[in-house]
Computed example of a mutant assay.
Amino acid sequence: MSARSFEFFAGDFLTYAGLENISVTRYVGDGGIDARGTLMAGRFQLPIGVQVKRYRNNVQRPDIDRFVGALSGHFSEGLFVTTANYSPSALQKATISVPHVLTLNGEQIVALMLEHRLGVITSPHNAEKLDVDGDYFAAFERMKSLWSDHINESTASYQAHVKELANDQPIDLNPGEDLIMLNTLGYALRVDPARLRRWVDDGTLTPDAVQQSGGRSSHYFRRDRIEPIRRMLHLEQRPESSAAWKQEFLDFARSKNLSKSYKPVMLKAFFLLVDREGKVRIDDLVREFRHIYVHYVEIGQPLERSSSLMVQPLEVSDQALKRLIVTHPLERFLIKNFMEYDQEQGIVQIAPHLWQELFHYEVMDVLERAEEQLRYYVSRDS
């Protein structure tokens, strides 16, 4: 990717890193604040400054020193994001510095992208493997071309500790020029992107720019339209209290709005296995998920009868079953910030701000409602 396109990617990615109310300043070259936003930490909202570095080599202590200097007097927290990693002295400085600096490295970026299926597609040759989605990254190059009158750059090499462009002056982007892609809009609104695409197709939602490539359309939206779109579509605001988070989760878990049986099955499997910390190993979740489908087949009430992997649950590989869970029922809980999935550790966890509020009787009620939803689903499709 070009340097400018990488900055567009970074601005889009920050939404998935937990920031809201993002404003991307996009300074070119070293130093300064690349973006600012609000870090959502449970019930707390922290103003935070961000710097993003496309490095091959590890970030060094002087990089953190310069960032701390840029933060001072403006932010009490900073987030440093790099495609590489950090030297021990850089991490030590980030930990003890005032303002404090959070760090995100390349492996963590990849983990977040895999969690939210950014830049990957199912391989056409093997349904159990993922391929890099080149069109996802090309969409940021196309985004750059939308503003060719404002953004003038040469091709930049991918190096560490050197300016990527000859000109290191800031480029002011008006709100209408700071765009995010449709999936990121969905994450910000806590709405399934597939639902947003349907609204785009039927004219309910109009993108600010559309580009075609290889038969695929890229839809872009102004970042400052997020809240107006939320109001226009009558979508729920992000809960502002722990009690509100819990109630929204319980309402969502109890809903009988089902196109497949996956959601209640995953909820039942999760809460049968959950430990004291609100965690379940994904491999254990896969086994219990399969066991529930097998049970219903054995009692003569199969949950799925057509167009689903789960018609024959014993014939589905563990890997394919894991992908189904992650991309369908779990994704909806991730979008709504009800659950977290650490792919590297193989752990699915209910969001800590929810887990600390749930009482035992409410967990039992979720299990009972999951059973009720499955009975309803079977009777509806009989």
Score class of each variant (00 low, 15 high):
S2H: 13
S2P: 01
S2E: 12
S5H: 04
E7Y: 12
F13W: 09
L14F: 09
Y16P: 01
L19H: 10
E20Q: 13
E20R: 15
I22P: 06
T25E: 13
G29A: 06
L39Y: 13
M40H: 13
G42V: 03
P47F: 05
P47A: 05
Y55K: 02
V59F: 10
P62I: 08
D65C: 04
F75S: 04
F80T: 02
V81A: 07
T83H: 05
T83F: 11
A90G: 06
K93N: 13
A94Y: 09
A94D: 05
T95D: 12
P99D: 07
L102Q: 09
E107I: 04
L112V: 15
L118I: 14
T122N: 11
S123N: 15
E128S: 15
K129D: 13
L130G: 03
D131H: 11
D131K: 04
V132R: 11
D135G: 11
D135R: 15
A139R: 08
E141H: 08
E153G: 03
E153C: 03
S157C: 02
D168A: 10
D168R: 02
I171T: 12
P175C: 10
G176W: 03
E177Q: 14
L179D: 01
N183D: 15
T184I: 05
Y187R: 08
A194C: 01
R195P: 00
R195T: 13
L196G: 07
R198I: 10
R198K: 14
W199N: 05
W199G: 03
D201C: 00
T204M: 12
P207V: 09
A209E: 04
R216L: 13
S217G: 03
R222T: 01
R230E: 06
R230S: 09
R231F: 10
M232G: 09
E236V: 00
Q237R: 09
Q237M: 07
S241T: 15
S242D: 08
K246L: 14
A253D: 02
A253S: 13
R254Q: 05
K256Y: 04
S259D: 06
Y262S: 08
P264N: 05
F270T: 00
L272W: 02
L273W: 08
D275P: 02
R276F: 06
E277P: 00
V280K: 10
R281I: 03
I282H: 09
D283I: 07
L285P: 03
L285T: 04
R287Q: 13
F289M: 13
E298T: 03
I299R: 13
G300H: 04
Q301K: 15
S306F: 15
P313W: 14
V316D: 07
I325G: 14
V326P: 00
P329S: 10
L330V: 05
E331A: 14
R332I: 02
R332D: 15
L334T: 06
E340R: 14
E340D: 06
D342M: 09
D342Q: 08
G346L: 12
Q349I: 02
I350F: 13
A351I: 01
A351Q: 14
P352M: 10
E357M: 12
E368I: 01
A370V: 01
A370I: 01
E372G: 02
Y376R: 01
Y376D: 12
D381P: 00
